[in-house]
């Protein structure tokens, strides 16, 4: 392995472009965390709206979720970046990355959350109402906490997806890890080696994240929750 790396100048390239690669990685990670944070919050709100909202709200949430999940993320980024300017709405590549991935992430998080909301049984509503809890109290104090715990595995999977999917940002030129790789390769013409390095960095980050996520999931585990 070591021979392979030295022979093909992998380590050389990695070391001499370290700064640029790390700045790409920093952007990728920041983008992922911000997208996950807002995507999850909007996702929960969309799920609540779809499951418990009055008809028009439920309908709007459903339409949003199905529209986003039913179209390719690439198309969504293209529309935000290339099509909207034709109507006078112009965003920077960075803004489009944050906006586009958040819009997309929210729809998926919403569907995972909705599944969890619906898995809370009728008996618990019955006992909550019998205690004199109002509907919103029942949702907030009984249903939602359980739905969130049920959703954690799906949400963390989504984190891994987003981490990798943010590489699509290179299509619009936002300065993520992939874009930086492309930039380095366009200068040294070592496309294979540079993308190989980028892939390894993604892999290492994914493995570390998975390890941390497992620890977090174990910490929040409650007997009786999958």
């Amino acid at each position: 392995m070591l021979e392979f790396l030295t022979e093909f100048m992998i380590i050389d390239i990695f070391v001499s472009n370290f700064g640029r690669l790390m700045s790409g990685l920093r952007f990728t990670l920041t983008l992922t965390f911000v997208v996950m944070f807002f995507g999850t919050i909007f996702g929960v709100l969309l799920a609540l709206g779809r499951s418990y909202g009055i008809k028009p709200i439920s309908w709007v949430c459903t339409a949003y979720i199905e529209l986003i999940r039913g179209t390719p993320m690439l198309a969504q980024l293209f529309i935000l970046y290339f099509a909207l300017p034709a109507y006078g709405i112009r965003f920077s590549a960075v803004t489009v990355a944050y906006l586009g991935f958040t819009i997309n992430c929210a729809a998926y998080q919403a569907e995972y959350t909705r599944g969890s909301l619906e898995s809370v049984g009728a008996d618990q509503y019955k006992s909550a109402y019998s205690l004199g809890m109002k509907r919103w109290q029942t949702i907030l104090f009984v249903v939602l906490p359980q739905a969130i715990r049920w959703s954690i595995p799906a949400w963390t999977n989504e984190f891994i997806y987003i981490l990798k999917y943010t590489s699509l940002a290179y299509i619009i030129g936002a300065p993520d890890l992939m874009t930086q790789g492309k930039f380095i390769a366009s200068r040294n013409y070592q496309f294979f080696r540079v993308y190989f390095i980028a892939a390894i960095i993604y892999l290492v980050i994914v493995l570390i994240s998975t390890w941390i996520i497992d620890k977090i999931e174990a910490k929040f585990k409650i007997p009786g929750f999958g």
Partner: peptide, 20 residues
């Protein structure tokens, strides 16, 4: 009704305990 329900305890077959 929410005040009235506080005066009436209800226990049923399925328990309805809050799992979390």
């Amino acid at each position: 009704i929410n005040e009235v329900r506080q005066e009436i305890g209800y226990v049923f077959q399925g328990f309805g305990l809050f799992h979390h």
